[in-house]
Computed example of a mutant assay.
Amino acid sequence: MNKKVHLEDLGQKDYKETWDYQESLFKNIVDVKIRNRREDASLETPNHFLFVEHPHVYTLGKSGNMANLLVDDKVLEEKGATFYKINRGGDITYHGPGQVVGYPILDLDNFFTDIHKYLRFLEEMVILTLSEYGLKAERSEGETGVWLDVGTPFARKICAMGVRASRWVTMHGFALNVNADLGYFDLMIPCGIKDKAVTSLNVELGKKEVDIDEVKQKLLKHFTTLFEAEMIKEKASI
């Protein structure tokens, strides 16, 4: 079981370019697994973790409802935003500047073969990170992601999640609002969930801006502990 995870921070990168890169890493892992099975081999499968910040973009999961995007192409263009239908689970999500997006591309055979546990670990990573900022974040039953003030009229989502998994290989991941422009969430029904607000870490802390690199380091610390992983920092490939 290879618990080494190759970490790349891509900086700000176009969504489609990053998606294509994810697909190539994902395919490489799957190809190794297929070869191992066909040839009765034992080649090591790699694991990856990408950090990225996207320009304004809306993505719709394969089970999502197009009606949850509340504006047309003209408005998207005026807002400088793009839109993609993609192959993850979940409904509609927004990505943009001031948001920490993480894409773990892991062979879960190297860790544990339980997709629900995988999602709970990603949520726990975010919950533990936010606790370091004095926030009590939690899960909302039946709603993947991380929330504040669950069970109250003030419930608000701070981190969205949506993943794809095939042959126990994962892609896509999480989007944590750190210094996000919350106005962009008004153009959609986030994750298809009506009447619940969205928030950002800087808003919750009453700050103009939170150090994004510090947030990333805290996320990685908890990811490493939860997954018992060894992070190997690499130069960005794209």
Rank of each mutant, 00 (worst) to 15 (best):
M161G: 08
L187C: 08
A155N: 07
C159L: 05
K157H: 06
N179P: 03
A165H: 10
D186W: 03
A155Q: 15
A155I: 10
I158C: 02
R167T: 11
S166Y: 11
Y184C: 07
A175S: 13
D181E: 14
W168A: 14
A160W: 04
C159V: 09
F174T: 14
M171I: 08
M171Q: 12
V178M: 01
M171C: 12
K157Q: 03
W168V: 07
F185W: 08
G192S: 04
F185M: 06
L187R: 06
G192L: 08
V163K: 01
K194W: 09
T152P: 03
R164K: 10
F185C: 04
L182K: 07
N177T: 07
F185I: 10
L182D: 09
P153A: 03
N177I: 10
F185K: 00
W168M: 13
A155C: 13
I158N: 06
L176S: 09
R167D: 10
K194D: 14
F154D: 15
Y184G: 02
P190Y: 09
A175T: 05
P153R: 07
G173M: 01
W168S: 14
T170W: 07
F154H: 14
G192D: 09
A160P: 03
I158P: 00
D195E: 13
F174Q: 11
D186E: 15
V163H: 09
R164L: 12
G183C: 06
F185H: 00
F185N: 03
G151W: 02
V178W: 03
I193C: 08
H172Q: 08
T170H: 09
R164V: 05
C159D: 07
L182Y: 00
H172F: 02
K157G: 05
T170R: 02
V150Q: 07
H172T: 03
R156A: 11
M171H: 14
H172E: 13
F185A: 08
T152Y: 00
P190L: 02
D181K: 04
A175Q: 09
V169N: 12
N177P: 04
N179I: 05
A180L: 12
P190G: 01
S166G: 12
S166I: 13
G192F: 02
D186T: 10
G173W: 03
K194G: 09
D195N: 15
R156N: 06
M171G: 06
K157R: 07
I189T: 14
M188G: 01
T170F: 09
L182H: 00
A180R: 01
A175E: 07
P153S: 02
F174L: 15
M161H: 07
T152C: 01
V178D: 02
D195R: 14
S166V: 15
I193W: 05
G192A: 13
R167L: 15
F185V: 07
L182M: 10
S166E: 09
S166T: 14
N177K: 03
A165E: 15
I193V: 14
V163S: 01
D186I: 11
M171E: 13
G192Q: 05
D186A: 12
P153L: 01
Y184T: 03
I189K: 02
R167K: 14
D186S: 13
W168F: 15
